[in-house]
């Protein structure tokens, strides 16, 4: 029968072993694979300013990006290719709440420069290799 000492060894040994594996994989991910898959070298100053706009307005509090967020407003990972630059800028620069089908967005009334930065951010996100996400709908089902 398992003793308390053995149970403790299982807990401590397992924790150390799996933490070590996790850390090793994390190092590989952030130093090698992820920069390549996310086109890290193409992060310009405009992209960084765009991310600051994204974060400081808590856009993730309604939208999702890379599938993460609040499920209240559309997924924006591929919004650049789906809606295009001018549509995105119109929404972000609107002085009245944008309300497609009645669901209101905060009117951020961004300046032209800020909207350009946000677009640069979405354009960079748009090019990421996300292992197939978001999935393409099945055309046969919509018939």
């Amino acid at each position: 029968m398992l003793s308390k000492k053995q149970a403790k060894a299982f807990f401590l040994g397992g924790t150390v072993l799996f933490s070590a594996i996790f850390l090793a994989l994390s190092v590989e991910t952030v130093t090698s694979s992820m920069p390549e898959k996310t086109n890290d070298s193409q992060i310009t100053e405009a992209v960084v300013r765009g991310k600051e706009i994204w974060d400081s307005n808590n856009c993730m509090g309604c939208h999702t990006i890379l599938g993460e967020g609040a499920y209240y407003a559309p997924e924006l990972t591929r919004v650049y290719s789906r809606k295009g630059e001018s549509y995105i800028k119109t929404v972000l620069m609107a002085k009245e709440p944008w309300a497609p089908r009645g669901r209101k967005m905060v009117a951020y009334a961004l300046s032209e420069e800020e909207a350009n930065d946000a677009v640069a951010f979405f354009k960079w996100i748009n090019e990421m290799d996300l292992n197939g996400f978001p999935p393409e709908p099945d055309p046969a089902l919509s018939k």
């Binding site: 799996f18 898959k37 599938g67 993460e68 290799d129 292992n131």
Partner: peptide, 16 residues
């Protein structure tokens, strides 16, 4: 610990 991987599927992390 390694189950954290389910958050890494589609955020630009590698396929492993």
């Amino acid at each position: 610990i390694l189950g954290t991987g389910h958050h890494y599927y589609y955020i630009g992390a590698p396929e492993y």
